[in-house]
Amino acid sequence: MSDAREAAGALAFADGAHERARFGMWIFLSAECAFFACLIGAYLALHGRTLGVPGPGALFDIPVTLAATLVLLVSSLTMVLAVDAIEREAVDALKGWLATTAALGVTFLGFEAYDFADYWARGVTLQGTVFGSSVYTLLGFHGLHVAFGIFWILSLLRACAALTAEGAVKTYLASLYWHFVDVVWIVIFSVVYLVGKAT
């Protein structure tokens, strides 16, 4: 009997691991916040230096970006539904919602690619002006995060067969990350696009 209890005690280390993983993810995301704060700060310091190419006011096309924003917002909702499906132990629903989330992420990147092509065509290049450098760097890093999130979700989908406590935590971590990327986008949309358009 005592052996069994001790074995259970030994596994407590592994159990605590889930709590620690969530905690660690939160801390990692706060470091990410600081990173994006620097990118946004640099953009705000430099975005006025357009040297003749269209500035934020002329360049940004709010309806298109708003559509992209909505896509990303909906993807956060589908991610919530995926986590909910785990709690109900509904494997099919989980797979469905994860796939939807990834698809919405890809759609968002499509919008972003369209935007980039448009900006480039209108003379805002990565090299030409520091406005271009800072806006592409900020949006590009966000896009890279979305892409990594998609990679993560697709990996989860592949591993879905083994839906265990382990898998639940992994999905939960991915959802935290995904929501974070979404929140960063809301900030970018407000500070870069809406404020940029208004001024």
């Binding site: 640099a42 310091a45 430099l46 230096r49 357009t50 040297l51 990565l126 090299q127 030409g128 002006t129 520091v130 406005f131 271009g132 450098s133 800072s134 592409y136 760097t137």
Partner: peptide, 16 residues
Amino acid sequence: AGTAFFNVPHGGDVVL
């Protein structure tokens, strides 16, 4: 990649 963050003629800012 030739960006202009610290390239003054292209609007870069060295104090950044």
